[in-house]
Amino acid sequence: MKYRGSCHCGKIAFEVEGTLEQVMECNCSLCSRRGYLLWFVPREQLKLATPESDLSTYRFNRMHIAHHFCANCGCAPFGEATDPKGKALAAVNVRCLEDVPLEGLKAVKADGRSF
């Protein structure tokens, strides 16, 4: 299925394709403060509809994940990283997708504070 998502003001917009069945709820210092519900997909399944230059990026701790956000509204719709085998991933904040009923998704807890 194809989903559309964006930051709050729409300066960052994207489409992502895949089967959304579960999300990860991480307890690291950033995810817990921002309330992320993350869906991991291969990076090629996420297509930006706005210029990449509109992305602002924050990295912390091991600097492994590029947490993208909008410098205008502050909303953080997705991040990018690679898995242990080097495959590019997108971590989509499901709260930024249009028309996704969150109550029907399985939330898997992740202990990001221990990474």
Rank of each mutant, 00 (worst) to 15 (best):
S6L: 08
C75S: 14
L37S: 02
F60M: 05
T19K: 15
L97Q: 11
C31Y: 12
F69L: 07
N72A: 09
E15T: 11
P42R: 15
T82F: 04
E52P: 09
H68G: 03
C31F: 11
Q22R: 15
L48H: 07
I12R: 04
T82A: 13
R95Q: 13
Y58N: 05
K106M: 10
T19N: 14
S56N: 04
V23K: 08
R95T: 11
E17A: 15
Y3L: 02
S53A: 15
R113A: 09
R34S: 06
G18K: 10
Y36T: 00
A107L: 08
G74Q: 05
A49V: 12
C9V: 07
C26Y: 05
C73R: 08
V16P: 04
K109P: 09
C70L: 05
F14P: 02
Y36S: 06
Y36P: 02
L37M: 06
L30H: 05
K47Y: 04
C70K: 10
A66I: 01
L55M: 13
A76F: 08
L30W: 02
T57F: 01
D83N: 15
I65S: 00
C70Y: 07
L97N: 03
L46Y: 06
K85L: 08
W39P: 09
K2P: 01
M1K: 09
F40I: 15
D99M: 04
A107N: 01
C96K: 11
E103C: 06
E52S: 12
R4I: 03
M63F: 07
L89A: 02
R113Q: 11
A66W: 12
L102F: 01
E21N: 14
M63N: 01
A90Y: 13
A81D: 11
G104Q: 13
G18H: 13
T50D: 05
Q22F: 13
S53P: 02
R33W: 04
P77T: 06
N93G: 06
L55E: 03
L37V: 01
E21G: 14
K2E: 14
